[in-house]
Design a protein around this nucleic acid. Structure first.
Lengths: 344, 344
DNA sequence: TTGTACGCGTTATCAG
DNA sequence: CTGATAACGCGTACAA
């Protein structure tokens, strides 16, 4: 009984005598034997394993991505190797060593790319790209050398701002996000330029601090509503994500403010709980499922990395928190503003 | 330059001449070389990888478990291999083959054990147990041959029922859960027996259908509130989990019912969004973090499987949805009922 | 201090 | 049809 024969039985090779096959199969069943994929991987040089690197699986948006990715990978017989980044920014050399050492078939980076300009991170990604295909969910950076998927968040921010404006809001704030997001993020820039196009003055004291959690949302809205004089307080909010929106809504309720009558709010990510908040949260859908499945397919079909950007729309899902079902708030916007809106 | 020398440099062996070390290190750095853990695994027979098997990472409770498990595993240099079960019940032989083939260092089963009585599943688990340590989050079953962690859900259900009763509710329903949960689940049995101990009549038409999603919660509460005559409709709900509670709250709001004034509600899992619902959702905390970390530690320290049950308390986290902050609802409970409650 | 030989479990190739 | 052999890349034991 040689090992080669066992392999042949396992792989259903036709060139095995039926008697032999039966005898081998019996031993296999008796011992509950299964061939070691570790050894198979070593021999073939293909681990059939995809790494997914993200800040935290606790964020339901990331969980949705991972879920779809796992499902898609399984279909092709691939497995998922999960890696949560210890903290934002600590994308250390150790992780890269780990990824390379594991001989993964590909890497799927999700989020945590706010510091992508850091030279060390760039260097690590460049290095990793020599070993395996990479797909990342991040803003477009053709110079990155691999596939970046992202949503047209700038367009969505513009759309959301205009939507709130057309509902009668003239003081619209953005809350949450990375620090100094107003200065750095393309999304915030788009938001501000849209306000300008609408003829609205730049928002005072908005969006200077940030973060992406419920607590951040609470803190931010509390700050705005206490620091600002009543006449400057926002009547509408565009939240960095649905978690921030959840916190903001909670804080507003605690302050006795009504949503959307007193403050309208729009979230981002269109997470599973959006239809179930009170009132249901208007949000921006990011097509997590499509992103993830397409990312896995790219990873599986790619022989080597090439720079590319895959953009998907970010579509506004209108529910009740933005006040659309209540119609215009207060007086109608001035005529010239409407034109400005149409100009864009 | 022999391979052995490279190994020595990599592992920081003292018996390497400094000149040699430097020369080898330089080549390593130049090529961005990292030793293949695949080969290491094959040689050592230890993959330092733990499998986590669950129904869906989309459920935030599971995500919390996975997050903590990943963190704990990393600390010991272990990795996480994720596997989502295609569907409830389809815990097929293929998965077990896969787990064995991967030569995992351990397996962590989360949820999806409602069908653990199925002989085929039992057989598969028994088989798997011969290859690696197993820890599962599931009801106690000493005969399973490995460690089961669970929460005292029966006690929690009793506590929740009594809490609602002492707030003046005499018609308390349980919604969601597996089909026929009233007949089969220990938790439902405990709930019903507590109602009996409190002197309350068995709930009509409660909990016959189930499920664990928001939609299930909506459907269930809608059914109860329409099928039942007003005098028999529940004034308080104990939901199978927070997702079901979320759906039920939403449906109640749509029907113009107030929470908790008209219907009090208690969830289960104490998920991240509980403090942020309107009103904040009273829930049962399941100590996901402790479960996960302890499970990983057990897996890493266990040489072979032994039957054991690790019980953790399930504690009621009182917020506003149960109406505790409003005090007694309606008239005080009858005296004999109070005694019955104390008897338990 | 360094090199050589062997085993880990599988598959592919070639010989019988 | 089946067995023997090499190779995958590493660590370990032993020899030089």
């Amino acid at each position: 009984m040689s090992a080669a024969t066992v392999t042949r039985v396992l792989n259903g090779s036709p060139s095995v005598r039926e008697v032999t096959r039966a005898r081998v199969q019996q031993v296999i069943d008796a011992h509950g034997y299964a061939p070691s994929s570790v050894a198979q991987d070593l021999g073939s040089g293909n681990t059939k394993t995809l790494g997914i690197i993200l800040p935290s699986i606790r964020n339901p948006y990331y969980a949705a991505l991972v879920s779809a990715a796992d499902d898609e990978a399984r279909r092709s017989g691939y497995s998922i190797w999960l890696y949560q980044l210890p903290r934002e920014g600590e994308l250390s050399a150790q992780l890269i060593e780990n990824l390379i050492a594991r001989r993964l078939s590909g890497a799927f980076f999700i989020g945590g790319f706010s510091d992508v300009d850091r030279p060390d991170l760039r260097e690590l990604l460049d290095r990793l790209g020599k070993y395996m295909p990479i797909v990342a969910i991040c803003p477009p950076r053709p110079d990155l050398g691999f596939i970046c998927m992202y949503n047209d968040l700038s367009g969505a921010a513009r759309q959301a701002a205009r939507h709130l404006f057309l509902l009668g809001n003239e003081r619209i704030a953005m809350i949450g996000g990375a620090r100094n997001v107003i200065e750095s993020g393309a999304r915030a820039v788009a938001f501000l330029s849209e306000l300008e196009a609408l003829g609205l003055p730049p928002p005072p004291e908005y969006g200077h601090l940030g973060g992406g959690t419920m607590e951040d949302g609470m803190r931010e809205i509390h700050r705005m509503m206490t620091v600002l004089p009543p006449a400057e307080r926002p009547t509408a909010l565009l939240a960095y994500n649905d978690l921030v929106a959840l916190g903001a809504m909670h804080q507003l309720r605690q302050m006795g403010l009504r949503i959307p009558e007193d403050v309208a709010i729009i979230g981002c990510d269109n997470q599973f709980f959006c239809p179930y908040t009170a009132p249901p949260l208007t949000s921006i859908d990011m097509q997590a499922e499509e992103h993830a499945r397409s990312a896995i397919r790219e990873l599986l079909s790619a022989s080597e990395n090439h720079a590319a950007t895959i953009v998907r729309a970010a579509t506004l899902i209108i529910r009740e928190s933005c006040g659309a079902h209540l119609g215009m708030r207060g007086r109608a916007p001035r005529h010239e503003n409407r034109e400005a809106a149409a100009d864009d």
